[in-house]
């Protein structure tokens, strides 16, 4: 009868998807490849041409999982000194801040010190991640130079308690992994990707770093703060 027809029309109300919003800030010297990392991650495009970022760029990437949508909001700050006063846009409210340096230019690693000092002053809750870029150019360089840079970078990441990743946007090396590490550190999830330690390889070190911060937080926070993982 009517009732049975109606029954077919009415479906159980759909399952409500969880949404996890994560803001990630990208900082570092000019021309280290912040914008290209972001564009590569969100749109999977690499452009050789250099475009200077004026102020802050913003892109979103949504990852659909079975029950959950993860939305990465990437804030990319122009590397020139004059944009330092816009640092709060990238740092405040971010759950993770990625510090980038150019593997072929050691002085950019030097300035990470200053970037970190500034960003940490604004947001000491965010997970720091140290990322060396242009790995595809780096491997062509002198072996001794490679060893030196890798060692210094490791020292930095130890002081910052930050996972260390060498990546290449042009050759798509370790790009996805940066953000997976960020997510794992934010929610204290167990990550089982194997680490890469040897000099000359695209280094990927995360197990030792970035867990002090989450230990300091009260343990059940990760589940309750799920909707808004930012502190």
């Amino acid at each position: 009868m009517v009732a049975s027809e109606e029954h077919e029309k009415h479906q159980q109300i759909p399952f409500v998807r969880n949404q996890v919003d994560i803001q990630v800030g990208l900082v570092g010297d000019a021309q280290v490849g912040k914008t290209s990392l972001m564009v590569k991650y969100v749109q999977n495009i690499f452009d050789e041409e250099y475009t200077q970022t004026l102020g802050v760029n913003f892109l979103k990437r949504k990852v659909n999982l079975r029950s959950t949508d993860i939305v990465f909001s990437l804030m990319d700050l122009g590397g020139q000194r004059e944009f330092i006063n816009m640092l709060p846009l990238a740092a405040v409210g971010s759950a993770a801040i990625i510090f980038l340096f150019d593997l072929t230019r050691p002085e950019t690693l030097e300035s990470v010190k200053e970037w970190y000092r500034q960003a940490y002053g604004l947001n000491n809750q965010a997970i720091p991640i140290l990322v060396g870029t242009k790995y595809d150019l780096f491997i062509d360089l002198d072996e001794e130079y490679q060893r030196q840079v890798s060692k210094t970078a490791l020292d930095y990441s130890e002081v910052m308690d930050a996972p260390l990743v060498f990546c290449s946007t042009a050759k798509s090396i370790n790009i996805q992994k940066i953000f997976k590490i960020a997510l794992a550190k934010i929610f204290s999830l167990t990550l089982t990707i194997s680490e890469i330690k040897d000099t000359g390889d695209p280094i990927l070190l995360y197990k030792r770093f970035g867990s002090k911060l989450s230990k300091n937080k009260s343990s059940p926070s990760s589940s309750t703060k799920l909707k808004t993982p930012r502190a």
Partner: peptide
Amino acid sequence: NAICALSDMSEWIN
């Protein structure tokens, strides 16, 4: 929901 989300996320990152 939170437990679901966390398990989904750990599956994804690995």
